[in-house]
Every structure is written in C-alpha cells, then in structure tokens.
Design a protein around this nucleic acid. Structure first.
Lengths: 116, 116
DNA sequence: TGATTACCCGTACAGGCACACGGGTATGCG
DNA sequence: CGCATACCCGTGTGCCTGTACGGGTAATCA
C-alpha cells in the first residue's frame, strides 16, 4: 500500500533475532517475583535466599528459581559465606534498566489511576 | 537471619500486585513482534496492518494479535481510512518506555558482543 | 448490486514459564 | 563422626502466551 514507508521501516527495524535478545532481557524484568527481587537488592545491597523469601513473602522455590535465571543472565552475583549465599546486583547490571525501567516504570504505575 | 534487612526490604518493596501491574506493562515490550511493531511505528509514525506485516516480515495474524494487545493496553491507537486501518503510537505512550527502554536497550544489545 | 479487499474475531493448538516436589551437596555443630 | 541447616538441581505439572486457521463485516470497484 505504501512501499516507501514499508521499505523505510523494514530497513531500520531490528531483526527478529536482535529483537529476541532485547526482549529476552526485558522478559527477565517482566515477572513479579524477579522484579521484586531486583528491587529488594537495589534497596538493601545484599540478601541471602532465605531472607529474600521472607522479604517478598514468597517461597524459597520461587525465589530460588528467580535467582537462578537472574544469575544465569548475569544480573545478580552470589557470595558464599559459610552455608549462606548472599546475592546482590551485578556490577555490570545495566544502569538503564535499573534507573529508567524499574524506577521510572514504578512511577508510571502510580500515575495510572485507571481505569475509571 | 538478618531481620533488620528483611524488614527494611519488606517495607519498601512493591507489593506483588503492584509489581504485577508493572511487569504486565513490561511484558508487552518483552515480545519480539510487539517490540518491532513499536519500533516501526516510532520510525514512520503511521502504518497499516498489512504494511506492518510486510515491514516486519511477519504474518498478518501475528501482527494483528500484537496490535490487539498493544491497543488494549493503550500503547497504540488506530485511525480508520476507508477499509484501511492505520496504527500509530498513542499520544500517551509512556516516554520512558520509548526513550529509555526501547532505545537504550537497543544499544545494550549492540554492546553485548557476547558470548565469546 | 455483486465481488473483492483489508481487517477483526473466535477457536484450536503448540510451546514455554513459573512453581512445587524430591533428592543431593556443602557447611556448621555437638 | 553423625545430624541439622541452607541452598542447588532435576523432574513434573498447570497455566498462560503466541500463532495458524476459518468465518464474518465494512468498504471499494465494476
């Protein structure tokens, strides 16, 4: 219908593969448990699995699973002290995610009084 | 183990419900098709369904489904001209998402030469 | 008016995800 | 050395999500 626009968009839009990598990263944030884990670690710097479960009122299974994915993705790192494993945000944790996505979006949800 | 930290985190971490709303919004970006739809609309301002499918090299079904969700969420709006329906980003499309999440994360994927 | 186009909707189905469960390992204590 | 704790891992299951398929509606063209 409008080949010019189609070509323009087609040339500049990321490939489905690149978009896949991008959305894979976003998907890690797009889960209540994982998002709250990241929030918690952003707040108190360091927490062990058990305390994290208490703070989020979630099961250790859920938290453990969340940490596993975040760890695999390199978003969090673990420090083992005795039998306790402490987690914190990785040094290389993407600042844009931390600053803009998490915090900005948190305010967005506040503004959204909807849906009246 | 560390009740103080647990209490501190517990008090400030968003509820699972609030986190759910937040992650629901993020989930809309966390899909290759939807993300590319938004990219395309960010680039050329306005596109109809068929052209969008061509630009993304996706089926109309996939694009139609993506647009349905984006539309329901209020991220895109439609303008009907004859039999053709043109879509564009909603005026109220969250700028932080547009500016920071989409564009910033796009650059992130570029930096990530991994996984050598 | 009849046929075709562009799009929407309901249904069906495959695939993945988050979580629960059971077992295993390493650490600390007596 | 033997037991308990804190955590990790493999497996199984219910749920949700994304897409393909078929039919339907509104609008253009002859």
């Amino acid at each position: 219908m409008d080949p010019a626009r189609v070509a323009a968009a087609r040339a500049r839009v990321p490939s489905r593969d690149d978009a896949g990598q991008l959305t894979a990263a976003l998907s890690l944030l797009a889960d209540p448990t994982r998002a709250r884990v990241l929030y918690a670690l952003d707040l108190v710097e360091e927490l062990c699995v058990g305390d994290l479960a208490l703070a989020l009122e979630a099961t250790e299974d859920a938290v453990g699973y969340a940490l596993r994915l975040l760890r695999t993705a390199g978003f969090v790192v673990s420090r083992k002290e005795g039998r306790v494993v402490y987690y914190r945000l990785a040094d290389g944790f993407p600042e844009p995610l931390r600053e803009h996505c998490l915090r900005q979006l948190l305010e967005l949800t506040r503004e959204t009084d909807e849906d009246g």
